[in-house]
Computed example of a mutant assay.
Amino acid sequence: MLSRVIFPPPNSLFITVMSMASLSFSVLGLCEGLGKNFEYSKFSNLNVERSTSKRNNTVCSRNGMLAAYTPAFLSAVTFSGLFPNVGLRFLLVNSALTMHFFKRILEVLFVHKYSGGMAVGTVITITLGYFTTTSITIYALSLTQGFPEPPVDLKYLGVVLFLVGIVGNFYHHLLLASLRTKIDKGYKVPKGGLFCLVACPHYLFEILSFLGICFISQTLYSFASTISTICYLMGRSYATRRWYLTKFDDFPKDVKAIIPCVF
């Protein structure tokens, strides 16, 4: 079944190893769900017993997220110049990744509101993760040139999923940003959009975006990295819902974490 929806794996030990490594990172989702969270956003100050030196080893969230997204964006732009004429599928994947991280950079600069900092180690980890995943996704697809197309073509479905995901993600980021003012930068229970059904609709639409990119590329690496991303965002959303329940008495108990009526 899998052979009908992905390109034959290229004769590349590097891609095979990175695909397996990417899949193994799914365990990060379990860690998030168990409370071992990356130190950014609302989880950056959970451990009040951190040492003074560790608290000082932070950067402001705005600069941290900008540093996390920019290398991945530049990677996608660079690959578009290195492989200018390699077919529609490659163009779509490269364009989607470029658009995805360009949107994130714009959100960091003009949409998101910040109230804390990010641990330097977290910034480095996220930056390397996005840069590596973006670069290898594009490189793995470039190795399929000359291979027969998968019997089941998912790229047009992928385009639709990506566009729905990126628009839905942006809309819910706007709703989150509207909760804060220059005077009041505290956390509130989000409302509007799909927040009436799930705690993290922005993660749900982000998953749709990455699924879209996965369906467009249809490579073994893209499937492995997407599974890892889904597991992480599900764990993160579960932890977020639990955080809302502990912090706000009025948070609706029937609101799920990320999948309406299911999880």
Results as ranks from 00 to 15, higher is better:
residue 145 Q to P: 02
residue 95 S to H: 03
residue 249 D to F: 02
residue 71 P to K: 01
residue 72 A to K: 03
residue 141 L to K: 07
residue 3 S to I: 02
residue 237 S to G: 11
residue 167 V to L: 12
residue 122 T to N: 09
residue 77 V to P: 03
residue 141 L to V: 02
residue 37 N to E: 06
residue 73 F to L: 15
residue 48 V to A: 12
residue 225 S to C: 13
residue 10 P to R: 07
residue 141 L to R: 04
residue 31 C to A: 15
residue 187 Y to M: 08
residue 72 A to W: 03
residue 87 G to I: 09
residue 41 S to P: 07
residue 69 Y to L: 07
residue 12 S to C: 13
residue 208 L to Q: 03
residue 61 S to H: 05
residue 152 V to F: 13
residue 30 L to V: 11
residue 160 V to H: 11
residue 237 S to K: 02
residue 29 G to L: 06
residue 189 V to F: 08
residue 101 F to C: 04
residue 130 Y to I: 04
residue 68 A to R: 00
residue 163 L to M: 14
residue 45 N to H: 14
residue 178 S to G: 11
residue 251 F to I: 00
residue 209 S to F: 00
residue 88 L to Q: 15
residue 71 P to M: 04
residue 160 V to I: 15
residue 208 L to T: 00
residue 142 S to W: 09
residue 159 V to G: 02
residue 154 L to F: 09
residue 190 P to W: 01
residue 258 I to W: 00
residue 41 S to I: 09
residue 28 L to E: 02
residue 98 T to C: 09
residue 111 V to Q: 05
residue 198 V to F: 04
residue 92 L to D: 02
residue 139 Y to H: 10
residue 172 H to C: 10
residue 166 I to D: 01
residue 150 P to W: 03
residue 112 H to A: 10
residue 252 P to D: 12
residue 227 I to Y: 10
residue 128 L to W: 09
residue 211 L to Q: 02
residue 40 Y to F: 15
residue 61 S to Y: 03
residue 247 K to C: 12
residue 8 P to I: 11
residue 159 V to N: 05
residue 255 V to E: 00
residue 19 S to L: 03
residue 134 T to N: 08
residue 170 F to W: 13
residue 194 L to M: 12
residue 15 I to A: 10
residue 180 R to K: 14
residue 45 N to V: 08
residue 204 L to M: 14
residue 140 A to P: 00
residue 243 W to L: 06
residue 101 F to M: 07
residue 13 L to A: 13
residue 102 F to E: 03
residue 198 V to N: 02
residue 186 G to H: 13
residue 254 D to L: 06
residue 237 S to W: 00
residue 261 C to A: 11
residue 53 S to C: 11
residue 134 T to E: 05
residue 34 L to C: 11
residue 164 V to D: 03
residue 254 D to S: 11
residue 64 G to R: 00
residue 189 V to T: 12
residue 29 G to R: 05
residue 97 L to F: 13
residue 233 L to T: 06
residue 112 H to I: 11
residue 143 L to V: 07
residue 29 G to F: 05
residue 45 N to I: 10
residue 20 M to W: 11
residue 217 S to M: 03
residue 180 R to T: 08
residue 103 K to E: 08
residue 98 T to F: 13
residue 5 V to A: 09
residue 76 A to P: 06
residue 166 I to G: 01
residue 250 D to L: 08
residue 42 K to T: 05
residue 97 L to G: 00
residue 141 L to W: 01
residue 75 S to F: 06
residue 7 F to Q: 01
residue 131 F to Y: 11
residue 91 L to P: 00
residue 180 R to S: 05
residue 172 H to T: 06
residue 225 S to N: 08
residue 237 S to Y: 00
residue 212 G to K: 04
residue 206 E to I: 02
residue 188 K to R: 14
residue 130 Y to S: 04
residue 56 N to I: 08
residue 58 T to D: 06
residue 31 C to L: 15
residue 46 L to G: 09
residue 232 Y to F: 13
residue 31 C to P: 00
residue 181 T to R: 13
residue 164 V to I: 14
residue 29 G to K: 05
residue 185 K to F: 07
residue 9 P to F: 09
residue 165 G to L: 08
residue 126 I to M: 05
residue 81 G to D: 10
residue 175 L to Q: 08
residue 8 P to S: 14
residue 61 S to K: 03
residue 12 S to E: 07
residue 200 C to I: 00
residue 28 L to T: 14
residue 259 I to N: 00
residue 194 L to H: 01
residue 33 G to E: 04
residue 51 S to F: 12
residue 102 F to L: 15
residue 150 P to Y: 02
residue 163 L to N: 11
